[in-house]
Design a protein around this nucleic acid. Structure first.
Lengths: 178, 178
DNA sequence: CGATTAAGCGGACATGTGTCCGGTTGCCTT
DNA sequence: AAGGCAACCGGACACATGTCCGCTTAATCG
């Protein structure tokens, strides 16, 4: 990669980071302008809004993925999975910030360099639970991602926390061997 | 309402119906143009894309809502609920057509004149199941709508049908009294 | 060190959603 | 029948995302 390209990429990321922290609905136009580059440049580096979000929150997403084995080391599988969902919910909660990035990372259709790792993280927990006999054997990570989409999309009003926790309980019950 | 307003509304709906049948991604601009009205007129009648979709598929949405009592008359509550989910999935399947309308009808935040009725339909089934002791008592319709959002959003690739059915099984298992 | 070249740049452009406002026209009153 | 007014009309506008392409410039090579 050319040196100026690298510089531009970094500058865009830095500007985006602060701009998105201020308002997660910041437009790409404004970010490009603030970074002193054209829209074309921004779009070449980050093909879509989600890609930019994902790059900005790359650290958080990575952290989420890394949490899986750590949780598994400290808890029985089903409990670990539940706690991992809790993490996911926590990220989703910061609406339109990490939330959108998580969405991007967990969407199957996009190129999503993080989709695979995310699935792998879930599979890790899932398989452990299957072996232990505490999770049903007939589900896979992709399905679960679809199912828990409400975690970062939920529009409940006030008692978001309570309802999220509630639905997670329901999901975990459904995941038990029947 | 003025007579010309009513006429315009009807003409927009008719044009939208055919345009959306042809391509569910038809732009509102093109619909307005085809209906011989300005964008302003279209937006006054239907404040958002979803509102227009909802109006176009009003019939289908109503049908979905009406299905609840009918299903309950013919099946035990849990089974009825599951079948109702099946209907929901069937509508969602016609991606970006009735699908978006269903989404609009089931979103809590929008004015959504159909949100209430949809919740009522689910509550009907839910309460019956609770009384019969076949569904857990600690969930409500709003939560369930959040949970089954995957039905009309799912991006799984090929075996969509199978995976949807699979996830529905999981949800129903989670809904059993624990 | 200068020429070549391909990657990179940036802004104009296409298209989409949703807002606004000055002109128009149906409806009610007298 | 005529006039006033409120509601309606429609297109210009603001602003968004994402594409395209002619110009620039960093890296390489003789």
């Amino acid at each position: 990669m050319r040196a100026d390209a690298e510089q531009n990429r970094e500058r865009i990321l830095e500007v985006a980071r602060t701009a998105l922290k201020a308002s997660s609905a910041a437009s790409l136009q404004s970010i490009a302008k603030a970074a002193g580059v054209g829209q074309g440049t921004l779009y070449r580096h980050f093909p879509s809004r989600e890609a930019l979000l994902l790059a900005v929150y790359r650290h958080d997403v990575q952290e989420l993925i890394d949490a899986a084995p750590a949780l598994l080391a400290e808890h029985p599988p089903a409990e670990a999975l539940r706690r991992w969902f809790g993490r996911l919910a926590a990220y989703g909660r910061i609406k339109h910030g990490v939330g959108e990035a998580v969405e991007a990372a967990t969407r199957a259709d996009l190129s999503g360099e993080y989709y695979e790792p995310t699935c792998a993280a879930i599979t890790l927990l899932l398989d452990a639970g299957k072996r232990a006999g505490t999770l049903r054997p007939d589900v896979d990570a992709e399905e679960i991602l679809q199912l828990v989409g409400f975690l970062w999309r939920s529009d409940f009003g006030k008692d978001r926390e309570a309802r999220t926790a509630h639905l997670l309980t329901l999901v975990m019950d459904g995941l038990k061997p029947q």
